[in-house]
């Protein structure tokens, strides 16, 4: 009985002492202290153990600076691995990476679908990104109706940039909307009601 209790307590104590996040935090701190090489090695070691947050960061590290085809492939590989474990950041940036392959229709489709899945999961930046992509024809075919629908969804979720865009669209008669000063004002009032801290 007491041995079982001891084992249980040990498991609980050890569960609260995970080394991987500590190593990741250390690697990121090194990265910001201009110790890029050491940080890169540490991230590679961590990513090789299958730790998704490190895989995502390693993928993003490959996408920084001057990106060539080799770096892009490596980035995609690590983002794929992290995304397979459900890492939201990896899912999002992998989708953007696919969307950016404008000549590859399959990749663009896969990117749009991946963003839609994220949007369905309630991830607001994905909803907003879809709206912006459909409005500007960024990767996908321009589609004002789709853009408006995604902007409305993002605004309904409280996404500030979507609300701002809708207010401007109603003001100027954009996105296939009739000019409506009252509706523009209503969206702007919503912005005033929900202030955001701008200190960070």
């Amino acid at each position: 009985m007491s041995r079982g209790l001891l084992i249980g307590l040990t498991v609980v104590v050890l569960a609260g002492c995970d080394a991987a996040p500590q190593d990741l935090r250390r690697a990121l701190a090194m990265l910001h202290n201009d110790q890029g090489a050491a940080a890169f090695t540490q991230l590679q070691d961590l990513a090789a153990t299958g730790y998704a947050p490190a895989q995502f960061r390693l993928g993003m590290l490959y996408l920084q600076g001057e990106v060539n085809a080799e770096r892009r492939t490596l980035a995609e590989r690590w983002l794929m691995r992290a995304a397979a474990q459900g890492d939201v950041g990896a899912r999002y940036y992998r989708a953007l990476l696919w969307l950016s392959r404008r000549r590859d229709a399959d990749a663009v489709d896969a990117g749009a679908q991946a963003l839609e899945r994220l949007a369905a999961d309630g991830f607001r930046p994905a909803t907003l990104r879809l709206a912006q992509a459909y409005e500007a024809g960024d990767g996908v075919q321009p589609d004002v109706a789709q853009a408006l629908s995604w902007y409305e969804q993002a605004a309904a979720q409280g996404e500030r940039r979507a609300i701002e865009r809708l207010a401007t669209a109603y003001q100027n008669g954009e996105l296939g909307l009739e000019r409506d000063a009252a509706l523009a004002q209503r969206w702007r009032r919503q912005l005033a009601r929900e202030p955001f801290s701008l200190s960070d």
Partner: peptide, 29 residues
């Protein structure tokens, strides 16, 4: 455990440092 939090003491306050990546700067948490 998924956010890998650690606590830094800063005078009378705690700063909970996580591994939650930022959308705008994914290499920062």
């Amino acid at each position: 455990p998924q956010w890998g939090p650690a606590v830094e003491v800063n005078g009378n306050a705690w700063l909970v440092v996580t591994t939650l990546p930022l959308l705008e700067q994914p290499l920062q948490s």
